[in-house]
Design a protein around this nucleic acid. Structure first.
Length: 462
RNA sequence: UCCCCUGUAGCUCAGUCGGUAGAGCAGGUGGCUGUUAACCACCCUGUCGGCGGUUCAAGUCCGUCCGGGGGAGCCA
């Protein structure tokens, strides 16, 4: 049960019998010997199990073993005469747990497209690519928790079901137990949500930030790491309806501290992956996106350059001829602009700060110029924005004013405003889309291939 | 939601000017070989995404619907 192939591959030769459990990737047979390549998901590389056909009696059993079959083998690790591996397993006994008939098993021993594998999402983790993605996802999750834990951040479980549209951003999935064929109506028309499960309209969360702020203003440094839901009808390679997001929030912290954390955070998780998933990262660099590992290393080695939105726009305007969408002050930066800043202007990661308030969320701190807010976007080569964050507006009057201007009802956010009424303090945080981070790290083009069972528009199978 | 591309064997694709389909891989059989993207020979496989239309004749042309991909918007 605890014997893993990744560990056995590191061993030299052992005298004691070991048991190896896994799935057959390929079987190669010759007159006197049969090779099984076994994989148990612990590493890209498999263990070669060798069966001596001159002494192994149960030939009919071998005939049933094909790509995909689940087997366990007992034997000794011996030096491998073959060139491609240091050790191999000399099989004494073998158990076939589950066959995988080749005529119907959807995974062949050849390369498949990621589009095809998406149609067999329940089997695709058995492939090299999706297996590597799963291991990297795990490693990055672990690194994130370790990073925050080491720095005294508390992991806060913010609610999945919420009754307030956090940022006004993003269509939400409604959560209801009402009978949709017989919806209770108000006399004046409209749905009577007082009859609904929560006694009011409820939806899946689009962000844990507002609740995260509440805990930051008690525990000082916190982070959330959970699923997030958006019902946007957007069908692109970087959108999911259900995705995972990390949102740290720090009290007694201005935008400067926020930027420092974002830089340290990215460098930490990238370093962790390069060190702990070296084999998988080499695989991605070779087969998925040439040089992803180098891109990450470069981010690790580069100081993050700070630049105001205004300066960035000035720089971009000089090159407006190169863009499909020319830039002017006040417009949001497109991916092409972000990439230009990080790839051409600075040749390294860039943090753009102080965006016009009109293109940012209501809760961001207003600058003295009253035109810009203390927002920051972290831009990295090959992608553009990877992190978005801000210092929050901690002044009650200014926050309320901003909400009214944007048509939000302050009374709907009474508890959020309470955080400014009682013990308010400068605080800051940012958000990182976990799945997009995994896309960046692995180089995988479509976000649906970095999450085990993707949910997107018209897509919730498995 | 909009724009573009695409749908042919289990998988990846070719199919010219309209004349009812091919390759590689996978699979099967046999051979060879401490093999490792194994190799050699032979064999098997098709509602050409669905429906409708034009035509003597449609994989091919037209319409429409569905699926997939890319881009835009929106965003993480």
């Amino acid at each position: 049960m605890y014997n893993r192939i990744s560990q056995l591959l590191k061993k030299t030769v052992t005298d004691e019998l070991v048991t190896v459990e896994g799935w057959v990737r390929t079987k190669r047979e010759s007159k006197t010997v049969c090779f099984l390549e076994l994989n148990d998901g612990s590493s890209l590389k498999g263990l070669q199990a060798v069966i001596d056909l001159e002494t192994f009696a149960d030939k009919p059993l071998l005939a049933k073993i094909s790509t995909g079959a689940a087997v366990s083998c007992q034997g000794k690790l011996i030096p491998s005469p073959g060139g491609k591996q240091a050790v191999e397993l000399a099989v004494d006994s073998l158990t076939l747990h589950g066959e995988a008939p080749a005529e119907s098993y959807p995974l062949q021993k050849k390369r498949h497209t990621l589009e095809y594998l998406r149609e067999i999402a329940h089997l695709r983790p058995r492939t090299n690519t999706l297996g590597a993605v799963a291991r990297v996802r795990h490693a990055v999750s672990y690194a994130i928790h370790t990073f925050f834990n080491e720095r005294g951040f508390y992991y806060v479980h913010t609610p999945i079901i919420s009754t307030a549209d956090a940022e006004g951003a993003g269509e939400q999935f409604q959560v209801t137990t009402l009978d949709l064929n017989n919806v209770p109506l108000l006399e004046e028309g409209g749905v009577d949500f007082s009859k609904d499960f929560f006694g009011q309209k409820a939806a899946l969360t689009v962000s844990g930030q507002l609740q995260g702020e509440a805990y930051a203003l008690a525990l000082k440094n916190i982070y959330t790491f959970g699923p997030t839901f958006r019902a946007e009808n957007s069908n692109t390679r970087r959108h999911l309806s259900e995705f995972w997001m990390i949102e740290p929030e720090m009290a007694f912290c201005t935008l400067e501290g926020n930027m420092a954390l974002a830089e340290e955070f990215l460098k930490y998780i990238f370093s962790y992956v390069l060190e702990n998933c070296a084999e998988d990262m080499e695989f991605f660099s070779t087969w998925i996106e040439k040089g992803v590992a180098e891109t990450l290393q470069k981010v690790i080695d580069s100081p993050f350059v700070e630049m105001s939105y205004t300066d960035a726009v000035t720089e971009l305007i000089k090159n407006n001829a190169k863009f499909a969408f020319p830039v002017k002050w006040g417009s949001d930066l497109q991916t092409e602009h972000e990439r230009f800043l990080t790839e051409e202007v600075h040749n390294g990661p860039v943090i753009v700060t102080d965006y016009p308030k009109e293109i940012k969320a209501f809760y961001m701190k207003l600058n003295p110029d009253e035109k810009t807010v203390r927002a920051m976007d972290v831009l990295v080569p090959r992608l553009g924005e990877i992190i978005g964050g801000s210092e929050r507006e901690s002044r009650l009057d200014l926050l309320t004013e901003r909400m009214v201007t944007l048509g939000l009802k302050p009374e709907d956010y009474w508890w959020y405003l309470d955080l400014r009424r009682y013990g308010s303090v400068p605080h800051s945080g940012f958000g990182l889309g976990f799945d997009r981070a995994i896309q960046y790290i692995t180089g995988i083009q479509n976000i649906r291939d970095v999450i085990p069972f993707p949910r997107a528009v018209k897509q919730a199978d498995f």
